[in-house]
Design a protein around this nucleic acid. Structure first.
Lengths: 128, 128
DNA sequence: AGGATTATGTCGCAAAGTGTCGAAAAGTGT
DNA sequence: ACACTTTTCGACACTTTGCGACATAATCCT
């Protein structure tokens, strides 16, 4: 497997869940069902448990008494949420849906080790 | 074998698959059946597994927490898709067919380590 | 506790992906 | 040119996946 690749359009069900594309399932289920979902600049990043660990490692070099670094840390931790894959679906909490402007349709965008969730209109703008 | 050479015209079947030219099969089947197909500027580029690895290597120095770099990474990962040769055929997912404007006929263009897929009219313009 | 809101599981249909086979077409050797 | 082999192609049946809908379960609030 080559990590999370590709762009998928999936629908949010009436309860705010998405179906994980089959190609991602393989990657996730070998792993642990836990995920960390993190609000970025208008979209969401999803870290499989393992990658979140690696990310924390990276963040651990930042110095919490430096204002710059502190902001960066806050960016990650403050708006992150733990999720799980259940019955092949991920529930996106209301706050995160809100933050990313997700309505009925969600673009799932592979980024190798992680993947992102975008509202279609924002994705459109981003990807040209 | 000397890598992927030559230009072939093949047809898309009713489900969007192409038959891999016999001359390419040797090269691919010795190898691993996995491929990565990536949308470029109006056409598709197909990386055998091994070559994709080399490409990732090239991307690995980018820092996913830098916005600039992140965009660059996204350009590759988001537009890529994992495929396989199955029964001598490659399924080109609907999104990729769309992106490359593929209809009934596809030009397969050898590029040594990789090969490309073009809609005939676009290829005409490019090579003409 | 009761009712509302949020979360989770399951099922069936429609759409997308896959395997196979035989006929047509292209390529090969004599 | 002819027979023979290989490759390509279309068709069909089958399998898997995505998605909406509904039912059930958990949680929160007053």
């Amino acid at each position: 497997m080559n990590g999370f690749l590709g762009t998928y359009s999936v629908s949010l069900d009436d309860k705010g869940r998405i179906n994980v594309p089959a190609k991602f399932k393989g990657l996730l289920e070998q792993d642990i069902p836990q995920l960390v979902m993190c609000v970025m600049d208008g979209f969401l990043i999803v870290f499989p448990q393992r990658e979140w660990g690696a990310n924390e490692e990276r963040l651990s070099h930042l110095n919490p008494s430096e204002k710059e670094d502190r902001n960066k840390l806050r960016e990650f931790y403050a708006r992150a949420t733990e999720c799980e894959i259940k019955s092949g679906k991920i529930l996106i909490p209301a706050a995160q849906r809100e933050a990313a402007g997700l309505k009925n349709e969600v673009m799932i965008v592979g980024m190798s080790k992680t993947f992102e969730l975008w509202a279609p209109d924002r994705w459109e703008k981003e990807s040209g």
